[in-house]
């Protein structure tokens, strides 16, 4: 199963690297969102290095941008397969449904982590904030949170892929479940890390980790039943 999954992931990533179209669109989108926030905060003098509560703002802006970009990216996770009808071939092979999930999870996760790191870069450029050297923990949090969100997202995408209202349904399914299990704890953890409250951050990290295990576990159990009998 693992080999199949890696094959699927490798194929997806190869397509991604060659065409770059999806990645470029997501990068552009994340840049636009960061810039929108930046210009909204212009009112509060953020560009002057002001706004004492930036450790509340910056994590929120970071994660909201990452979540929006990842949701956008999630819309097209299965669309190529749907278009080319190769999904039927994928499903016919034995034990391949979980491999499909894992493969898509790996490839999407890789793309979204890149987007998340770029978002952090954009944030650093346009909303200057002193991380006080806590770059690595924040990166770690981004990786974990993105993984949890993607784990939920692949299943949500699979379920909404065949619906005509996919663009509306996917966020509606994902955001209520992910909001308090992944997004809010991640924002809180990032904020704690920036405030150097590492024990509090650890609590929230454990929570996000628990959520991601839950999402992966439930997805693996459920993925078989998502397709037409």
């Amino acid at each position: 199963m693992l080999r199949e999954a890696l094959t699927i992931a490798a194929k997806d990533l190869l397509v991604e690297v060659r065409t770059k179209e999806r990645l470029a669109a997501l990068v552009l989108f994340s840049l636009v969102v960061v810039l929108s926030f930046r210009f909204s905060f212009e009112l509060f003098g953020v560009h002057d290095g002001g706004l004492a509560q930036s450790h509340f703002l910056v994590p929120a802006v970071l994660w909201v941008t990452v979540v929006f970009s990842a949701t956008l990216g999630m819309l097209t996770v299965f669309s190529k397969e749907e278009e080319n009808r190769c999904i039927e071939g994928l499903l016919l092979a034995p034990a391949s449904r979980n491999a499909l999930y894992v493969g898509k999870l790996v490839s999407s996760f890789a793309s979204f982590v890149v987007i998340a790191l770029l978002t952090m870069l954009f944030l650093g450029a346009f909303l200057p904030y002193d991380y006080r050297g806590q770059y690595l923990p924040v990166v770690g949090l981004l990786v974990l949170g993105t993984f949890a969100y993607t784990a939920l997202g692949v299943t949500a995408a699979a379920v909404s892929a065949s619906s005509r209202m996919r663009e509306v349904l996917l966020p509606v399914i994902m955001i209520p479940i992910a909001l308090f299990t992944v997004i809010v704890p991640s924002i809180a953890a990032t904020s704690d890390v920036l405030l150097e409250n590492l024990s509090g951050a650890l609590d929230e990290v454990r929570f996000v980790a628990f959520s991601s295990v839950l999402f992966v576990g439930v997805s693996l159990l459920v993925f078989d039943y998502l397709w037409e009998a």
Binding site: V159, S160, S163, I173, I177, F180, F215
Partner: peptide, 14 residues
């Protein structure tokens, strides 16, 4: 129905 069922499962997990 399939969509709602999956959502119902994840929703309870929360």
């Amino acid at each position: 129905a399939r969509l709602s069922a999956v959502f119902g499962i994840f929703a309870f997990a929360t």
